[in-house]
Every structure is written in structure tokens, then in C-alpha cells.
Nucleic acid binder design. Structure first.
Length: 625
DNA sequence: ACATTATGACGCT
DNA sequence: TAGCGTCAT
């Protein structure tokens, strides 16, 4: 192991030694903050008259335990306590693929990538729940609805909740904890092991001992305690643990669902903490535990490093843990990554992650998709149209419910297609998407638009004797760009303004379509029908410009390597070619640009490597938005 | 027969 | 901005 002289190394060492050196840390911290004075200093760290206590942001992650299984068990409680899995497409490959498995099933050797048949082999008594099917596809409605139930409970407790997925949410606890801080410090309220319930402390064996030490310090010298960011942050974490424990209990009371939680200073740390003790437990990750924990943490287990970037870190630097990453100097990181990515990684490696919790409890898009593998691949217009109809059937119901419940409506309809030349070589799949304006939730209108967009694209890739040259192995539609309210006249008008009225030949594939009928027969129409006809004419005009650019970009054509192959090529070429001409370049370009906006926002210009010379496990803070 | 699936968020050009 | 890529559960 190389010797380390950099500040981040100091940080790691200091963090391991804990608070004993925190006076020194605090000094460095203060200096660092002076260097980055007021504008970039988080309000949460500013002590003011109104707000005498400065603490770091406090963020929790709530993760539902094997959520889909719990949803099924609530419906059929007689299976509680038994090994159980949820699979979809029972009649397909090996009895269906597992999408959730109970902890009892895990104990008996069932694995995440198993299929139902594999699970029965290692655990014959396993209960297999099958995801409902509707319109020929898996229907996840009951899990989405259950997830919304949980979010509702969370919103009852906390203002700032970010739905991260159907079964996970981040919560910003900072304000709530801050409000409670004086009452706990004054002993009006007391932090007890009971109040912390099912809490674990990362890198600590006993919640009791951890609390005892906290109170020991508080008794010893209350003024010094309040003046110490380290002490105050630990105290705040404990209060956060009480709040999250209460929340989790309420989730159980209201929904019957159990969950795990992580409580720390950032999304990254709370996510990591959450995974340390599962299920039905929550884990507090204090600053002084970050160093020791990172020494044992695989890079790919850290949020945002689970993909290509994480793998390239591991390959390029020949390391595997966050502790090792922490010891890599920024200049070394810069050899492989952009300036911004290098700094971002260096910060992450000491536990800094300034990504704010977004207050968002609703999804921003609503979609359906399905794979069509092997012989199920779609190659005719009729097949594609049929599936568009299925998707729209599901989507329109979900969209109308969303409109009624959330007073918003989508303005963009996106069609996504993955296609291959040979449906059995799915690794050579090419993905593309096309969109059209969404001006109503009328099923026929959506099918018309979605199909026309898809058909135009696929036809442009080659079409003969009723078959596309390419086989569709994944098809999906999605509604997004949500606007407040319903579809108003002005909203719809804006889409059609300035559009050419160009007819599209849809008579073959939409022979009985009422739009086509009106057009073809030109029959006398009622006012409503006239309205429809006009809408169709305009609709055709409105999607013309999209249809005109139906061909995929040239550089996206031709057999593309699989992810695995790409990875390989990248490492082979990385030294010999410039960034922009190699696949590595593409990756770095992507990761760099991916970071750029974020890093800029998080680390203002004055945040230099010098400014980063901050010690201790307590420099996490957020630049105000 | 082949094989995670069906979602979802976000950043860049 | 439309479309693609990455990362996630």
C-alpha cells in the first residue's frame, strides 16, 4: 500500500480516530469555511441568533424490504414468515423471473437472478406469487399503489421527500431535527435506546454505549458540546434516528409494510447505511464511522459508482474499496478522469456528496414497456400496432388516474424501440426513441400517434413484404413533461401552431379507424365528428415534423458492441487514442459531462483543491441552491 | 432456444 | 430540444 500524504488521507485517518482530534479538525474546518465565505456556506452550518445551532444536513433513506413480496403478503397473510418470491411471466422462461424475494427465501439459498424453477429447486416449499398480467403484459399497478401509500405516510411526517423508486425514498430531516434540537439539549426530551427502537450505529456495537457517550459529553461540558460541530452532529443524528424510527413505525401501522432506513449526512451515506442492517432495521452512520466503513466498502456498492464509472475506477487504478479510492490523489485521478470527475470522486471518497434531496413525491413520467425476446420479437406492422394498443390501454388508465389525483397532464408521448437484425442476438440491440405531442388521453389518438411514430421509424430501417427488416425486441411508450391542469384549448393549440397539414398514409393499418373513416368516406359528420376529423387532420400535421426525422442517427447504425465488449475495447485503446476518438473517450465524455453540471452546482469556482483540504468526518455540507 | 423485467430519473449535445 | 446514454431498483 502506498504511503499517503494528501489531505484526504489525513481525513481518513482522522475520521478513524474519531472525535479526539476534532478540535484540530474544527479549526481546519473553520478556516476552510472562511476561505469559502458566506455565499457558499450552507445555512444549516451557520449559527445565527434565530438559529443558534449549526449542524450538517441530515438525510435519511427509507427502503422497503422485499417490497413486492410484502405487497403480496398483505393480500395473503397466511404466507407470512415463509419463503416467498414474486415472479413475472410464469409461463415463460423457467417459470418466470424473480423480481422480489423474501428474506426467508434468501436464507434458503434463493438468489436474485434465479427463476421460479431455480428457486423451487433450492427451496421446494417456496411460495411463488405471480405478478398480475393485463393486456398481455405484467401489470405493476398494485405495487405502484402500495408505494404511493408509503409515500403518503412519509409526507405526513416530513416536508421534503424524494421518491427515488417505487420502494425507496430520501427524506431531508434537517429542518425537523433542528427544531427539536433545543428541546433535546435542554433535557425536556431524552434520547433513549427505546426511542431509537430498531436502530444500529455503523461501526459500533451498542446503541446504548453510543448514546451514553453522547450524554456523557453533554453533561461534562454543555457549552463545549454545543460549540462542537462533531458532538452536535452526532446528537442531531440521534434525533434523526428517533424521527425515522417513528416514521417507520407509522408506516407499519398504516400500511403493514416494514422497511429499513439509513440516517446520515448525504444521500450516498444514508443509502450505504441503509444497506448495512436489513431488514426491519435502521442504521445511523456518524461521521467518524465513514472512514472505517469505507475501508470495507467496495467501490461498486456506492451510489453512482455501480456502473461503468465504478468499473473504470477499479480497472484503471487497480483498487477495489472506497478506502483505497480515498488515498488516491486528485492528480492521479485526473490521469483517468476529467478535472470535474476527479474532484467529484475525491469528495465522494471522503463521504462528501452535496446532492440535495428534491421535494418530489410523484413520478415525472408514466410509461409501459415490454421485452420481446427470441421468437417473440415483433417484425410486422400489425404486431407493433397490437402492442401499441395494449400499452395505450394500460397507459391511458394510469394517466387518467394521475390526472384526477394530481391535477396534471402529460404533454409528451415518447415511443422507445430496441431493435436487432437477428432477434436471437439481443446483445447487438440498438435503442432509439421518437416522440410526439400529447394533446389528449384519448386511446385512439394515442395509439395513432404512437404507432405512426414507431412505424415510420421501423419502415425507414427497411420494410418488405409486410415485415420490417429489423426485429423489435423491446417496445415501450411513456408520457412525460407533466403540466398543471388538464388539456386546455391553448395548450393544444400551441402544438399545432404553424404545422403543415400533411396527410400520412394510414389507410392500410388503420382501415377501420374512425379518423380514417371520416377522411376516406368524407361522410356527413356531426359536430362532434367534425371536431374529431379536424383533430385528426391537425394531429397528422402535428406529427409530420417528427415523422420526417424518423431515421435513427447514422452514427447509431451498424452493429454496436455489447456493454461488455465496449468495456473491453475501451481499456485496450485508452492509451493509444485521444479522448474524443475512442470509446473510452465516449465514456469519459459521458461521465464527465454527466458530472459537470452537478459538480458546478455543488462546488463553486472557489472550491479548489486547497479549499478541499478539510479534515475530519464532518465537512459534509451543501451549497445553498 | 436465446434471456432479468419493467420501470424511472437525469445530463449532455 | 429530441434523442441517446448512464445509473438505478
Amino acid at each position: 500500500m502506498k504511503s499517503n500524504t494528501g489531505h484526504r488521507n489525513d481525513q481518513g485517518r482522522v475520521a478513524e480516530e474519531g472525535e479526539e482530534v476534532c478540535g484540530e479538525q474544527l479549526g481546519a474546518m473553520e478556516n476552510a469555511r472562511k476561505r469559502c465565505q458566506a455565499p457558499s456556506t450552507s445555512k444549516s452550518l451557520m449559527a445565527t441568533e434565530d438559529d443558534p445551532y449549526k449542524i450538517d444536513p441530515l438525510i435519511a433513506l427509507i427502503d422497503m424490504d422485499c417490497f413486492y413480496v410484502q405487497v403480496e403478503l398483505r393480500l395473503e397473510p397466511e404466507w407470512r414468515g415463509k419463503p416467498a418470491i414474486v415472479v413475472q411471466y410464469k409461463t415463460r422462461h423457467k417459470g418466470g423471473g424473480i423480481i422480489a424475494l423474501s428474506y426467508e427465501a434468501r436464507e434458503r439459498g434463493v438468489k436474485r437472478f434465479h427463476h421460479a424453477d431455480d428457486a423451487r429447486e433450492v427451496c421446494p416449499e417456496v411460495k411463488v406469487f405471480v405478478v398480475p398480467e393485463l393486456h398481455g403484459k405484467a401489470d405493476l399497478t398494485r405495487y405502484r399503489d402500495a408505494g404511493a401509500e408509503v409515500i403518503r405516510v412519509m409526507k405526513k411526517h416530513f416536508h421534503c421527500v424524494e421518491r427515488a423508486s417505487v420502494d425507496e425514498a430520501f427524506v431531508d430531516l434537517t429542518k425537523e431535527v433542528k427544531q427539536l434540537l433545543p428541546r433535546y439539549l435542554s433535557k425536556e426530551l431524552k434520547l433513549t435506546p427505546e426511542a431509537l427502537g430498531s436502530t444500529c450505529i455503523a461501526e459500533s456495537h451498542s446503541v446504548e454505549a453510543w448514546l451514553d457517550q453522547l450524554y456523557l459529553k453533554l453533561e461534562e461540558d454543555p457549552e463545549a458540546f454545543v460549540a462542537s460541530s462533531v458532538q452536535l452532529n452526532n446528537f442531531a443524528l440521534a434525533i434523526g434516528a428517533v424521527l425515522v424510527n417513528d416514521l417507520r413505525q407509522d408506516i407499519i401501522n398504516v400500511t403493514e409494510f416494514h422497511c429499513s432506513g439509513g440516517i446520515s449526512y448525504s444521500k450516498t451515506l444514508s443509502k450505504l447505511a441503509c444497506g448495512l442492517n436489513k431488514p426491519r432495521k435502521q442504521t445511523v452512520l456518524p461521521g467518524n464511522a465513514v472512514g472505517p466503513l469505507f475501508n470495507k466498502t467496495n467501490i461498486i456498492d456506492v451510489r453512482m459508482l455501480g456502473g461503468k464509472l465504478g468499473r473504470s475506477i477499479i480497472e484503471n487504478l487497480c483498487i477495489s474499496t472506497m478506502g483505497e479510492l480515498c488515498k488516491v490523489e486528485v492528480p492521479k485521478l485526473r490521469q483517468y478522469f476529467s478535472e470535474e470527475t476527479a474532484r467529484w470522486l475525491a469528495s465522494l471518497a471522503v463521504g462528501i456528496d452535496n446532492e440535495p434531496v428534491q421535494e418530489r413525491d410523484l413520478p415525472k413520467s408514466i410509461g409501459c414497456s415490454k421485452n420481446f425476446l427470441g421468437k417473440e420479437a415483433l417484425s410486422t406492422r400489425e404486431q407493433v400496432k397490437k402492442w401499441m394498443e395494449h400499452f395505450v390501454s394500460e397507459l391511458s388508465v394510469r394517466l387518467k388516474k394521475d390526472q384526477a389525483e394530481n391535477n396534471r397532464s402529460a404533454s409528451l408521448l415518447t415511443v422507445s424501440i430496441t431493435y436487432v437484425k437477428d432477434p436471437f442476438k439481443i446483445k447487438s440491440g440498438q435503442s432509439c426513441s421518437r416522440c410526439a405531442p400529447m394533446t389528449s388521453y384519448d386511446n385512439e389518438a394515442m395509439v395513432y400517434d404512437a404507432f405512426m411514430v414507431a412505424d415510420r421509424l421501423l419502415t425507414s430501417l427497411g420494410y418488405r413484404n409486410g415485415r420490417y427488416h429489423y426485429a423489435v425486441i423491446n417496445l415501450g411508450i411513456s408520457a412525460s413533461k407533466m403540466r398543471d391542469g388538464g388539456f386546455t384549448a391553448s395548450r393544444i393549440d400551441s402544438y399545432f401552431r404553424g404545422q403543415k397539414k400533411k396527410e400520412v398514409d394510414d389507410s392500410q393499418i388503420f382501415p377501420g379507424n374512425k379518423y380514417s373513416e371520416l377522411k376516406v368516406k368524407g361522410r356527413d359528420a356531426s359536430k362532434i365528428q367534425l371536431g374529431k376529423a379536424k383533430e385528426v387532420r391537425e394531429r397528422k400535421g402535428s406529427i409530420t415534423k417528427y415523422l420526417n426525422q424518423a431515421s435513427p442517427r447514422k452514427d447509431a447504425q451498424g452493429g454496436q458492441a455489447s456493454h461488455h465488449q465496449q468495456q473491453k475495447v475501451r481499456t485496450e485503446h485508452m492509451e493509444s487514442k485521444s479522448d474524443t476518438e475512442t470509446r473510452l473517450g465516449q465514456l469519459l465524455q459521458a461521465t464527465r459531462s454527466q458530472r459537470m453540471g452537478k459538480v458546478r452546482r455543488l462546488f463553486p469556482a472557489r472550491f479548489t483543491d486547497e479549499g478541499g483540504t478539510r479534515l475530519g468526518g464532518r465537512q459534509r455540507r451543501r451549497v445553498p441552491q
